[in-house]
Structure formats: structure tokens, C-alpha cells
Write a protein that binds this DNA or RNA. Structure first.
Lengths: 259, 259
DNA sequence: CGGGCTGTTGAATACATTCAAGCCCCGTGG
DNA sequence: CCACGGGGCTTGAATGTATTCAACAGCCCG
């Protein structure tokens, strides 16, 4: 079941989501499959963009909203540069996940999005929605569903915030990542954390050193195996216990079946 | 400009949002105003529910999704009961804000919502959307916009999580509340925190005592005035500086004009 | 009046951060 | 080819901060 591509040197390849598990799938399907001969809709609304190199920006804070993105492969971080000059990581984005929904109403992207590794995205130009005529309704319905799923996913965040110890917080973070991979049918037992320790620290409000120490501790407790940014979760229910959410399920997202 | 209703004993009355600043307004307007003589749509889709007493539940975790809510007056907290038995506060909901969007796609509410004070809500039965025929498109458009605004608002949360000290975190929390009030045209310089200290502590991942101590410290620094749950912000840019986001704007939500 | 709940305050402990040093990997340039 | 240097990551010891434990004040409600 695990689709991990472990290479000779033990490194894990960049993940890419299957279209069937992408946040935009319902929309792609509408545009492409429902009208087999008429590919125009797909071409208008959903298109692939040229790959983005590591460190490349999808857009910057303040840019006018033009399109919604879904990560096809690779990963991103979103961050804001605060007036104080501090850079605050807002979140990470993995294959299949939507980027930019916050900008639909506001008309501007409120943060900057940077590729953590070479990555590719599908994009959806909402402006062209009007062109789709009668399909508009089902199109919008799909978008609403996608945004709702995204909101559901975001529930990990307050859970993370509620953690009282660094141990809890990091355990929860790992679980949230694994869960997000699992939902998209990506390998969730063994994967690569594409972001630096300092990105994680910034995101979680901890010191970089604490991340190192805790991962080390987890490894000593046989809960997981760390090789740089590569991670293998060995004892999921153990990690869950540390995270303070008890061995299984009843959590925001279906943690059941992660392994 | 401040609509604070300060009563004889110094207590601040329960806030209620004007319809024009409600998250469901676009939808209400569509349903009620665009077809002046036909109120049926409004009746079908948007309706007021009987007031909910303090401590009353809007719905429980696991309940099947039936409707979307918007807070009309009062306030709510959402929380999950983890397998470990611990109760984790997920968030708070103030007048004008939407409740339940996470459940649209999943079909079940993933958390429990409890009234922090006697409160009232407007509800929207999404199932009846199909009845609206040609208005469906603009209806969905409004819903998409509402969900986008909500996503934008949620950006406070990662900011809160990124805070490294209790001082920062609490300052950010106060700002986020003030900002959410301001957006709905509710008094944001002087208001009542409807939740207990322990709810705040749980939400922020801090100890109850820390909340007390910090509020006290802020008061000593003349940044604000605390009277139990009533709060008056005296030096907004001071609080912002403590929060680590610099004196003004460029933050997730238009902090400009909070005062 | 007593009990429970919420909130505050004080002292000891535990925890995460900070500061400092060193390692590893990798790309650069001698 | 190897030396150098930088970034990312780890590890150790000292500091500082938040938690914990405990006690108490205020308030609502029975």
C-alpha cells in the first residue's frame, strides 16, 4: 500500500498527488470528463503551470488575486513578513491542497508562497467561471466542497496551538502531516519533511534546538526514525499518546487508517 | 463611533451584529431583498432559531450536518473532547461569524458548539439550496465569498501559534478578538470577553494563571484596563508591539482602523 | 450561611530558550 | 584535488520563563 519510493541512498522522492485525490479534482472532472469532446472548459479554467524551482514564489503578499492553485507535486510554505521584520510561517502546503482561498473575497493574496522544493501546481482562474454557463452551479458546488474540506483540515491548527508542551506540539505536527498525506493517498508512514527545522520551529513557535531535541527523543523512544528530513513513523499510537489525543480516531481528520 | 453599551454597573452588554455586517448577509440579501414580494426563499433557507441559553449546545460532535449557522448575538466556543478525555477548545465565535463550514463536505459536525452566554443564531439549510433554481449561482457565489472571508480571518491562528512567549500570544489573542469585532462593526476598543480564563488558557495552550498574570501585567503597563471579563484597550500600538507585529497594518486582517 | 466556580496571587519546580560550540553536507574557489 | 566557508542541524550548559502547587478572595446560587 505504501507508495514510498525509497531510493538507493535512502532518500525519499518528491511526492506527487494523483488527480483523483487532488483538492481540485471535482472541478477538473467537471471541466474535463463530463463533456468528453469539449476540452475547452478545462483549458480555460484549469491548467498546469510551468514547474516552480526550489525557493521560487508562487505569488507575493499583496499581489492581486487571479487564480486558485492546487499543489500537484512538491510542497510550499506560506509566510507573512510582519511589520517588525520578523518572518512568520503561516502554513505548509502538500500535494492535493488548495492555495489562495483566503484571497477570493479580499481580492489580494495576504501572504507570500514559496516552494520548499521544485514543485508544480494546477491553477484555476475563477474569473473565467462566468464563461461556463450552466455548469456554473455544479462547478461552484465543487468549489464549496473543496473549501469545506480545507476548513476541516485546518482544524489541526487550533489543536496544535492548544498543546502545552513542545513534545505534544511536535507530536501533533507530525501526526497532522502524516494525516494530510494519508488523505491524499500519499505514503504517510514514511515521508520526507520538505521544510527546514527552522521553518518548523517558526511555525510552531518553538526554538530550532527544541525541534532537534524532541525528534531525537522520539527516536530514542523508538517512536520513529529520523534521517535528516526523512522520517519513518514506527509507533503511531505512541505518538498519538504523546500528542495527548489518545491512541485513535475521534480527531478532526480520520486518523484511522493512517497506517 | 463606539457602540459600547456600558451599563450602570460598568458591565458591557451582549453584542449583536447588524445584518449588514453578518457573514450570511450576502445570502440573506439575495433571499430576501432581491425578490421583495417573495419572502419564501428567505423562509426556506435562512431563519432565526430560538435563543440558546448559556451553556446550551448548538450541535454536538458527530451530529449529521444539516445547516450552517451565523451568530446573531452572543458568542460560542467550539471544542473537541479528545480520546484522552481532555477537552480542547478549537475556537470562539462572535456575532456575524459562520459556524459549521467544516461539516459541509464531511456531512458531520466535527466538534461541539456551546453558547458562552445566551445567544441567538441565523441558520441556513444548504439542502434547500436546490430549490432556489436560477438564483442558485449567485447564492453559491455568496457562500464562496463568505467562506473565503472566514478563511482569511482564520489566519490569526497560525500567527497565534507562532508566538514564542505567553506575552506575545495573549497580546495577539486580544488583538484578534478586537479585530474580529471591528470587522463586524462592533465596539473593538472596549468589550467583554465572554469566555472564561480557563477557556482562553485551553485555547492558547497556556496555564490559567498565566492569563491572569499577563492581563495584570498589561494593565500595569497601562496598555489596557481589566475588570473581570470586561476589557478596555488603551494603547493599541503598544499591544501590537508586544505581540511582535509592529505598530500597524500589513497583518492578516485590516488592523488599521480598529480604533 | 456554605459550597462551588472563577479568578488572582505567591513560591518552588520543571521546562524551553538562549548562548556557545561543533558536526555534516555541499558548493565554491584556490 | 583539497581547502574553505556557509547553511542546516545537533548537542551541551546556563538562564529565564511558564507551570505547578497551594492558598485565598470574590461571586453567584442554592
Amino acid at each position: 500500500m505504501d507508495k514510498v519510493v525509497t531510493q538507493a541512498d535512502g532518500r525519499i522522492s518528491r511526492a506527487a498527488v494523483e488527480c483523483a485525490f487532488c483538492g481540485l479534482y471535482g472541478i477538473c472532472k467537471l471541466a474535463g470528463l463530463e463533456q468528453p469532446e469539449e476540452q475547452t472548459l478545462l483549458d480555460y479554467m484549469v491548467s498546469r503551470r510551468e514547474p516552480i524551482p526550489q525557493g521560487g514564489c508562487l505569488f507575493n503578499a499583496g499581489d492581486p488575486f487571479q487564480e486558485l492553485f492546487a499543489v500537484k507535486s512538491g510542497s510550499f510554505k506560506t509566510y507573512a513578513v510582519l511589520e517588525s521584520g520578523r518572518e512568520q510561517v503561516i502554513g505548509f502546503h502538500f500535494p492535493g491542497e488548495l492555495i489562495g482561498v483566503e484571497a477570493i473575497a479580499a481580492g489580494r493574496y495576504p501572504y507570500t508562497v514559496k516552494a520548499l522544493e521544485s514543485a508544480s501546481v494546477c491553477r484555476l482562474e475563477l474569473q473565467r467561471m462566468a464563461l461556463s454557463g450552466e455548469q456554473q452551479a455544479s462547478f461552484q458546488e465543487q468549489l464549496i466542497a473543496a473549501m469545506s474540506r480545507r476548513a476541516q483540515q485546518e482544524q489541526w491548527v487550533p489543536l496544535l496551538m492548544g498543546a502545552q508542551t513542545a513534545e505534544q506540539r511536535i507530536a501533533l505536527f507530525l501526526l497532522s502531516v502524516a494525516c494530510r498525506f494519508a488523505v491524499r493517498d500519499l505514503p504517510s508512514g514514511e515521508f520526507r519533511l520538505p521544510m527546514s527545522r527552522s521553518d518548523i520551529a517558526n511555525y510552531l513557535g518553538l526554538a530550532v534546538e527544541t525541534i532537534s531535541r524532541m525528534l531525537q527523543r522520539f527516536q530514542n523512544q523508538r517512536l520513529l526514525v529520523v534521517h535528516g528530513r526523512n522520517l519513518r513513523l514506527r509507533n503511531l499510537s505512541g505518538i498519538r499518546s504523546l500528542a495527548g489525543i489518545g491512541p485513535l480516531t475521534t480527531t478532526p481528520m480520520p486518523l484511522a487508517g493512517v497506517e
